[in-house]
């Protein structure tokens, strides 16, 4: 059925279903994200992409199905525990903490991996201080320089332009020591130049950091350029997947994506093609 995936799956979603009242946001969704690859999830508005991310991060509890991370079933873990394992993400509607500076937002990403307790913190002795300084140094050298946001590190996030906010969100996710990075529409609302910067950062994260990436995106150009594997979601169901070129060549997928095609017709054609 599916095309060959390089590497073993870091994340595996098995038959996940999720409903809100009458709305079936996800029905029996199964997919994999192979280690060291970029997997893109595309689909029209309301297809259930964000809901899928939320189910993977543990914010929604699926009615059925399992989520496996590095072979381990994490379906019952609370969101913070999943974050600690290395599931990092950004949000479609930027979710930065407006009361903090850029630097503190990024530092917050490391929370689960720090050990400072209340007493350390009140006195700011020993461990707290060591940990904070080491964290600061690492963030400066590995993340702030990498994402080229030195000039805004002291700025309150609320005052930043949209494109930079998205970049800070990425920085915060990187601070989470991700094994898999889930990006929900990383370039939505960006201009050409900003999009290209972001695409470059994402590729660099994959290559230099060796992080597996799962990405929801509407910008087809970018999806086709940088992803290794594309999954098409429509009405909460996976209707197609494959290499970008395969998916792109399929006019049915494009029309479904644009919301103009009949879904039944689309999947019939798709299945016919695969049978052939």
């Amino acid at each position: 059925m599916t095309s060959e995936l390089p590497g073993s799956p870091v994340l595996k979603v098995e038959g996940v279903s999720l409903a809100f009242g009458g709305v079936r946001a996800l029905s029996k969704v199964s997919l994999e994200a192979a280690e060291g690859t970029i997997t893109a999830i595309i689909g029209p508005n309301g297809a259930g992409k964000t809901s899928l991310f939320n189910a993977i991060s543990g914010f929604y509890r699926p009615a059925e199905g399992r989520i496996l991370f590095e072979g381990r079933d994490i379906s019952r873990l609370r969101p913070p525990a999943r974050a600690k394992l290395g599931l990092a993400r950004t949000f479609q509607n930027i979710a930065l903490f407006r009361g903090m500076t850029v630097l503190d937002n990024i530092k917050l990403g490391r929370h689960a991996h720090l050990r400072t307790n209340v007493l350390d913190a009140l006195f700011y002795w020993g461990r707290a201080q060591r940990e904070e300084l080491a964290l600061r140094q690492e963030i400066e050298e590995r993340i702030i320089d990498f994402l080229e946001i030195q000039h805004i590190r002291r700025a309150p996030v609320g005052a930043l332009p949209y494109g930079l906010q998205k970049r800070v969100e990425l920085a915060r996710a990187l601070a989470m020591r991700p094994k898999i990075l889930m990006l929900d529409e990383p370039v939505a609302g960006m201009n050409r130049e900003e999009t290209e910067d972001m695409a470059r950062f994402i590729l660099d994260v994959k290559e230099e950091w060796g992080v597996t990436i799962l990405m929801v995106e509407h910008d087809m150009g970018m999806v086709m350029d940088i992803s290794d594997h594309v999954i098409v979601l429509n009405f909460g169901q996976v209707i197609a997947q494959g290499r970008p070129a395969e998916v792109q060549r399929d006019p049915a997928v494009v029309s479904a994506y644009l919301g103009s095609g009949d879904v039944g017709e689309l999947s019939r054609r798709l299945h016919a093609r695969q049978a052939a």
């Binding site: 969101p79 974050a83 903490f97 903090m100 400072t116 350390d120 913190a121 915060r172």
Partner: peptide
């Protein structure tokens, strides 16, 4: 002590909860 608190992860977690508690949870804060 209070000022120190907000130089560390404990204080950051508090502010995160104030600003957007549900995102904070997904980012690793119980």
């Amino acid at each position: 002590g209070a000022a120190n608190l907000f130089r560390t992860r404990i204080g950051r977690a508090f502010i995160a909860i104030r600003d957007r508690d549900i995102s904070a949870e997904v980012l690793g804060i119980p």
